[in-house]
Design a protein around this nucleic acid. Structure first.
Length: 246
DNA sequence: GAAAATGTTATCAT
DNA sequence: TATGATAACATTTT
């Protein structure tokens, strides 16, 4: 379900709810009592990386879909418990399933670094470079998945970006030249918007060049596979055309 | 039907 | 204390 572009779509699809009051709420979340939400207006609905933030007068909620979460707008799933369901004053519904719900206590600006959100106008590539320069031994595969640096980048985007810029996932950040590192940062954003466009057209998977693929489309030789880095996520890469910098 | 996967976090051990 | 391994969660697809 997730990766930043998906959350971006969710945010786009729900803008009409901003300003509306919640007329009823339900769900099996233990983070909050859904009844607390009734009567409150939605102040904002925002996406930050893979987080969906619902801002209300008395609290903010963070929805995270993890690997399996899903949502329905003006519809619901049969035979599934809602983790959280909001019924709006215009009769619309916003339902979340199999996701993590968390209440955010502190001020949103204190919790979120808006410049790290790859899909946002507030994205700041210079900040990403600065964060990476602070830990040069980090593997590029870990850096791209680091939500403090590239909020919204997930495993698919990671694999596609590294293939596009011809960098081996086990390269270290510090071994990349300055232009190469800038290219990595730029491509993280560029590919995220390609992902967004393709997902909307239902052709995302058809446009994968590396992720879950077996043959390198550039070299026509088998891709290598591995589970690398702190999170041991799948890497698909070409030993021939993706250079290992270290 | 087993296994794996677009992900994170809590908990326990070192 | 900090880091690291492991489990836990929950759904859909192969």
């Amino acid at each position: 379900m997730p990766e930043g572009p998906t959350l971006f779509i969710l945010q786009e699809e729900t803008t009409r709810f901003v300003g509306q009051h919640i007329v009823s709420a339900e769900g099996n979340t233990t983070a909050i009592d859904p009844r607390e939400l009734v009567g409150q207006p939605i102040l904002s609905l925002q996406a930050w990386g893979k987080h969906f933030i619902i801002e209300l007068p008395t609290m903010a909620l963070r929805i995270h879909f993890l690997l399996f979460g899903s949502y329905q707008i003006d519809a619901h799933k049969e035979g599934r418990f809602k983790r959280l369901g909001l019924n709006m004053e215009d009769g619309g519904e916003l339902n979340f399933y199999a996701c993590s719900v968390k209440e955010i206590d502190a001020d949103l600006d204190a919790v979120y670094d808006w410049s790290a959100n790859v899909m946002s106008d507030t994205w700041n590539p210079a900040n990403a470079l600065k964060k990476m320069r602070a830990s040069p031994d980090t593997l590029v595969c870990d850096a791209l998945l680091d939500q403090d640096i590239f909020a919204g980048v997930g495993n698919i985007i990671k694999n596609e970006v590294l293939f596009r810029i011809r960098v081996h996932p086990l390269s270290t950040v510090g071994a990349l030249s300055a232009p190469k590192l800038r290219q990595m940062v730029a491509e993280a954003r560029t590919y995220s918007f390609d992902f967004l466009r393709w997902k909307k057209l239902f052709v995302l998977k058809a446009n994968w060049l590396a992720h879950a693929k077996t043959i390198c489309p550039r070299c026509n030789i088998p891709f290598s596979k591995g589970k690398f880095g702190k999170t041991q996520r799948r890497a698909f890469f070409c030993e021939n055309c993706q250079k290992r910098y270290h």
